[in-house]
């Protein structure tokens, strides 16, 4: 077997030469301005993402803001796992998140493919700008606007329904309609933003493949199906895995749309933890619920990465 020499490339894999500590320090000095730029980000990561991990110890304590934490072992988890409300919130979180994730991906990819087909540069830019805007509107504002639109008494949507001879629908107070509204609002707000990465991936597809396919007689849909989608499939998978890590982080969008009539069917882990922390000041149980959520997220992302390796031969986590 041939040994690689320092810096030698084999099958496009670059094996960096080993460097001494002194050489590494010379490199650091050489790139010192990049390190300087990175420093605030690194500090912020440490302070806001890594140091707080220390707080998971409270999941194993009886802790309120007014008393010193006392170690209670797994009592907080026992309490959570025996609570019907917790499992209900967990089920709701999984259902709402996964449906939102899948719908979001399908619509984002679809919209990206449509935008990619637009030939007029100005119209394309205009379309992109318009579909990105909702992402920048806060959930509080979105909820206020759509509560007005969907009002059964004075809302635009019900005015149309009534004009067509239907009874008005109290969308936000109906268990079944609330979920539909939730998914639609998420699509309206985030689909445009989700297209950015797919549009970038589509821009990198070799145009000669489309030309060759056209010569071979491929139609419009066939070119999309056999060229565009396979070309961005790695990107889709990557985005899916990255989004999977955030799948249980539902809070804002649910909290601002919740009301007493749908509170059980819309309660998610985020809102459950918030209620426990705020109304009962039970930081121990809230931290336990938060930790459970993080563990599930870690499991999900590990499974997705393993699947990615099986299907694509490589995972994004290494």
């Amino acid at each position: 077997m041939k040994l690689l020499n320092k810096g030698e490339r084999v099958k496009n894999t670059y094996v960096p030469p080993k460097k001494s500590f002194k050489q590494k320090m010379i490199d650091v000095y050489h790139y010192r301005w990049f390190y300087l730029m990175f420093f605030p980000v690194f500090t912020s990561l440490l302070v806001f993402h890594y140091f707080p991990i220390y707080g998971i110890k409270y999941a194993f304590t009886d802790y309120t803001p007014f008393t010193e934490p006392t170690f209670v072992g797994f009592a907080n988890f026992e309490y959570l796992f025996s609570s019907k409300r917790f499992w209900q919130a967990f089920r709701n979180t999984i259902e709402l998140s996964f449906i939102k994730l899948v719908l979001g991906m399908v619509f984002s990819v679809g919209l990206a493919l449509l935008i990619d087909e637009v030939r007029s540069v100005n119209f394309r830019k205009l379309t992109q700008t318009i579909v990105y805007i909702p992402h920048f509107i806060s959930w509080v504002v979105v909820a206020s606007i759509f509560t007005l639109f969907l009002s059964p008494q004075s809302g635009m949507v019900n005015a149309i329904l009534t004009a067509l001879g239907h009874e008005p629908i109290y969308f936000l107070a109906s268990d079944s309609w609330w979920r539909v509204v939730f998914y639609l609002l998420n699509l309206w707000k985030e689909t445009g933003w989700g297209t950015i990465i797919y549009i970038a991936a589509l821009a990198g597809v070799d145009q000669e493949m489309y030309e060759a396919a056209t010569i071979d007689g491929a139609g419009h849909l066939q070119r999309v199906w056999y060229i565009s989608i396979p070309a961005i499939s790695v990107t889709i998978l990557t985005v899916f895995i990255l989004n999977l890590a955030k799948v249980l982080n539902l809070f804002d969008s649910v909290f601002v749309l919740q009301n007493d009539s749908v509170i059980k069917s819309s309660d998610v882990i985020g809102t459950y933890v918030y209620r426990l922390g705020i109304t009962s000041a039970d930081y121990g149980v809230s931290t336990a619920a938060g930790l459970f959520k993080s563990v599930i997220s870690l499991v999900l992302i590990t499974i997705a990465n393993w699947l990615s390796k099986k299907i694509k031969g490589e995972g994004i986590l290494g």
Binding site: R85, D260, S261, R275, T279
Partner: peptide, 18 residues
């Protein structure tokens, strides 16, 4: 009561609204 407030309020709100 402090322990169950969160769950109890959720259930009462749901029942009354329905």
């Amino acid at each position: 009561l402090n322990k169950i407030t969160s769950d109890l309020e959720l259930e009462k709100a749901d029942i009354l609204a329905k």
